[in-house]
Design a protein around this nucleic acid. Structure first.
Lengths: 344, 344
DNA sequence: CTGAAAGCGCTAACAC
DNA sequence: GTGTTAGCGCTTTCAG
């Protein structure tokens, strides 16, 4: 079995307290003693048992990140950012997938498995405002996303309404009038789909363009396949549009594919804008104009806020932290002046 | 603070052993006692302290997964599969990113942070055969990938040479003779790039087609941008080819984008095949023919093998487990007979 | 500067 | 059936 403090102490001929002092580099240790101990540590290949240390200290040095599915690019990139940021703080990340299922999310919040961590970054997808009370948990938590607001915890999220409105206005400024939406959720008010749709409506209103239900394509989950299906529906029912707002990049890419299959040119006939600024948005054909909702900032802020909350558990934490967004202009929806330059 | 066994025992008027018996549903507990205890548990909102349990049992119920970067789609999908499989076994997964950097990988193997887990699924990218001794670690480990063979641990991987040869033969069978490779690594023998390139060469040889160095495009990392750059190089130096073998899907998609920018039709002028069968390969334009290297099987097998190794630490584990591969035929490299059918 | 000893919360002999 | 008790390996008063 692995060596323990006792083994090291015995070999070095000192007490375990002295070994402990050396390990935690407590300053007042005689240099000769320190060397003896370090030699013994090296000889035995001793490494501290973190479980014991954690039991003692009540901390684990790990945080949990719960998200729907790493197969969804947005969440994969978010997780990459969270892990990288946690690493800077010397903290390790345990990743849980909920599948975006409400019951699994609720179960997770009460799971004893979270006891392995000091706190949770929670990105729900199935839960809604009615579950706000479930966020009252006995451990530090930071909530992401836009399923639940005004919970008893810190909340880091993006500016969905504002960003979507900006995306819509961007399309309108480039001469688009009939903007289809791919990925709306029927009757949803809160949640990414609901909020981004609201921003879309605001953008139309500001420009005096009437809202047309016939341009809205609904989906369940935001997979590529659903973006493709939604676009096929739109085409099948004869919708006429000169732009598409994919409520995320994945949907937009799926929709774009169907457009091209149907012989509709992007951006010649139809402009397409997405949301997320995934890595792949740079490399699609054409490259995808999109809204960067500040994912890196969200990851960084979530980790820092959680660690702060862990360090100061008594303070009240229920701030709402909003990331900046910006439109990343690429080929699928060029701005007017560029279009006139690049057109043949 | 959170309630402990003692608190529950005191409230229920029993000893902690009885409470422990109830929690671990030990059969011989009088029903009335059980109820009393359960009531106390509910009242106090007691949940067991896993850290203490782990210290006692020497297990943590967690495994670590170390991979280069979740921002790389293949690893994100692999991680999703690993976490899902681990969850079935009631085990939680701690994800570490190494950036594919050799030193970080070596450091990770010796990191005390791994003490928080019962074992490691390790997917190195920077380490090589010369580091095989570093795999001799005092905890259960399963190695993935093709950087290191014949280590002192179980190894789960894909059939790189065979799959690449099959991909090459597939292209040849469809009339292709000049097949460019995107993503080779200069001078590499082992490792994904080296092995897949070897399979490519074998495929050419079997068909009596001479190897042409001018058709090989080298890259460092396998990001989309590098696939694009490699293809630009190939075009810039006037290479003539009628097919492209992207050593992974991401490279193939980047290369395909550049081909189309250059007015080269896929698959009309050039066939493209990738490797990985990422989700997005289904939805690119055109959809990407690719080699499915058995990623799900690898994830499942890695988790099961590791858990088995954790349960039976004494047995010698140094098996080599190989996934089946298969060619997933899509639009970017249609098979001959289908091409003639679907052509207008 | 270093040693002795208590105890973090839990499980598992071992009694009764 | 249920209670007592001894640790798991570590940190941390408190003495010396």
């Amino acid at each position: 079995m692995a060596a323990t403090l006792h083994d090291v102490a015995r070999l070095a001929g000192v007490s375990i307290k002295t070994v402990s002092n050396v390990i935690n580099d407590y300053p007042h240790v005689r240099p000769t003693t320190r060397e003896k101990v370090q030699a013994a540590i090296a000889e035995l290949g001793y490494t501290p048992n973190l479980t014991a240390r954690n039991l003692r200290s009540g901390k684990t040095g790990a945080i949990a990140l719960a998200l729907p599915d790493l197969g969804l690019s947005y969440f994969a990139e978010l997780a990459a950012d969270v892990i990288a940021e946690a690493e800077k703080a010397g903290v390790v990340v345990l990743v849980e997938q909920t599948g975006g299922d409400r019951q699994r999310e609720l179960d997770l919040l009460r799971s004893p498995r979270l006891k392995l961590t000091d706190g949770l970054i929670f990105s729900p997808l199935g839960m809604g405002q009615e579950d706000v009370d479930a966020l009252e948990v006995p451990y530090p938590m930071v909530v992401l996303g836009e399923r639940i607001f005004d919970g008893p915890v810190d909340h880091v999220t993006m500016q969905n309404v504002e960003g979507a409105r900006a995306a819509t206005e961007f399309l309108i400024a480039n001469g688009r009038r009939r903007i289809a939406v791919v990925g709306a959720h029927e009757g949803e008010v809160i949640g990414s789909a609901g909020l981004r749709t609201r921003g879309y409506v605001q953008g139309l209103e500001a420009a005096g363009i009437p809202y047309d239900e016939g341009l809205i394509a609904y989906t369940t989950t935001w997979h590529r396949a659903n973006g493709a299906t939604a676009m096929r529906d739109l085409l099948a029912r004869g919708a006429e549009f000169d732009a598409v707002f994919g409520l995320n990049d994945t949907l937009a890419l799926g929709a774009m594919r169907v457009l091209q299959e149907a012989g509709i040119d992007v951006p010649g006939d139809v402009h397409v804008i997405g949301w997320d600024d995934l890595d792949e948005a740079k490399y699609s054909i054409p490259s995808l104009t999109t809204v960067d909702p500040g994912r890196r900032w969200i990851a960084r802020t979530a980790v820092r806020t959680l660690l702060d909350r862990i360090a100061n558990p008594t303070e009240d934490h229920r701030s709402l932290l909003l990331a900046d967004y910006r439109i990343v202009e690429r080929e699928s929806a060029p701005a007017l002046q560029r279009e006139s330059v690049t057109a043949p």
